[in-house]
Simulated scan of single mutants.
Amino acid sequence: MASSAEISLALVAGEVSGDMLAARLLAGLRPELPNARFHGIGGPRMIAQGLVSDVPIETLTVRGLFEIIPRYREIKGIQNRLRERLLAERPAAFIGADYPGFNLGLEEQLRAGGIPTVHFVGPQIWAWRGGRIKKIQRAVSHMLVIFPFEEPIYKAAGVPVTYIGHPLAETIPLAPDVAAARAALGLAPDARVVTVMPGSRMGELKYLAEPFVRAAGILARRDPALRFVVPMAGERQRAWFSESVAQAGLGHVELQLVDDSHTAIAAADAVLVASGTATLEVALFKKPMVIAYKVMRASWEIMRHMGYQPWIGLPNILAREFLVPELLQHAATPEALADALWRQLNDGAQRDKLAARFLDMHHSLRRDSARESAQAVLRVIGR
């Protein structure tokens, strides 16, 4: 059996959520394989766990169906070069962290070439594009899933699968410290705080920054004492967001831009949030929220006919009901967003109900995901 020093594992994450998930896996693997080489494509969290990233993760980050077209050749070139390199290097396994459009295609080719493949976070075939299961059967040696209802779906399709729990359910405390979060942000303990989360990707900011800020402006007129906190994923997002606010003539709305999204969520009374992993983060912090989603019109016209269920927000999908409002595409106007969030801010009974439901959700997702995912990978590579 090869020693730890001789083992190489390749990983690819294409956006912030995948970087976070794969970093937990690497944290579990490192004690078991202390001298192994981790390489591929990842973000700061994966790099902090020892990954050598061949290209910046931002190079892969694209959102929507048509938005990828201008960058298709660039991204396809990265995929082809990585495939050829890995087929030559023969890592013990390839691990794709989410980002299925890129990773499943790469995994299919690598597995056909005899390299075991692990896909971390099952694509949402339960939500849309169920036909993708046939590609998954060809591409994936072992699937890691983060929601309990996913395991039987993959088992029924004959795909080896392990439910590992959701890493966020471990890193977010069951009882967040609101006072400490507000103190860290310089907010008064009794302030009314709205956290605005228009997304970590530039494509999300393009479509949601302006309606979110205009909604904040409407709310500020209703209650001038409201404080608004906006977490930004990086300097590029911060600069773009600030410029878009200025161009929209919304400089009079006081928005506190911060780096730490978890502190911003913990401090909030309610959150206006782009659909995605952030909605689950907000739920785990037990906060009322309004979920919004907007993409290029052509993308929307296709995607709106592809869903299998009435919800897009993860908290609602897990609850199997509309626990919190979802405003999609044309419905996500500043006025509608402001009205929905105003109700969330001022309905104490609803806030208590949500906190209880979100606490139950938190417990159901809480496992040692680093250990569970690492053990599954070790089984795949025969360790």
Rank of each mutant, 00 (worst) to 15 (best):
R129K: 15
W128F: 12
G122A: 15
G131R: 04
V145I: 10
I115F: 11
A139C: 05
W126A: 03
A127F: 06
K134M: 00
G130P: 12
G122S: 14
I133W: 05
V118Q: 07
I115R: 15
I133A: 00
H119S: 08
V145M: 06
G122D: 13
S141R: 09
I136W: 00
L144Y: 11
V140E: 06
L144E: 10
M143T: 15
G130N: 11
F149P: 03
T117Q: 13
V145Y: 06
W128R: 13
T117I: 08
Q137E: 09
I136G: 08
H142Q: 14
G114C: 03
F147D: 03
G131I: 06
F120Y: 15
H119M: 11
Q124H: 09
G131K: 06
H142E: 07
A127W: 03
I136F: 03
E150G: 06
G130L: 10
P148R: 06
K135L: 14
E150V: 08
K135G: 10
A139W: 09
R138S: 00
R129L: 12
T117Y: 12
F149R: 05
R132N: 03
S141W: 12
M143N: 13
I146Y: 06
A139I: 00
T117L: 11
K135C: 07
L144T: 05
V118T: 09
V140D: 01
W126S: 10
R129Q: 15
Q124F: 14
R132W: 07
M143Q: 15
I146E: 06
R132L: 09
V145P: 11
R132K: 08
I125Q: 08
R132P: 04
I133M: 09
G131H: 02
K134F: 12
V118E: 02
K135I: 02
F120S: 07
I146A: 08
T117M: 13
T117V: 11
V145S: 10
G130M: 02
K134C: 04
G131F: 05
L144N: 09
V121W: 01
K135F: 05
I125M: 10
A139K: 02
F120P: 07
P148H: 01
S141N: 13
P123Q: 09
F149E: 05
R132T: 06
H142K: 15
F120H: 04
F149K: 01
A139G: 00
I146D: 02
V121N: 02
M143V: 12
V118M: 09
L144R: 15
E150C: 00
K135M: 10
G113P: 05
K135Y: 01
G131E: 11
G131D: 04
R138W: 08
E150A: 01
L144G: 10
I133D: 03
I136T: 05
M143P: 11
S141F: 11
K134L: 11
G131S: 07
I115K: 12
L144I: 12
V121Y: 03
I133L: 08
V140F: 00
W128L: 14
P148G: 07
I125N: 10
E150D: 04
F120Q: 03
H119G: 08
P116K: 14
F147G: 02
G130C: 09
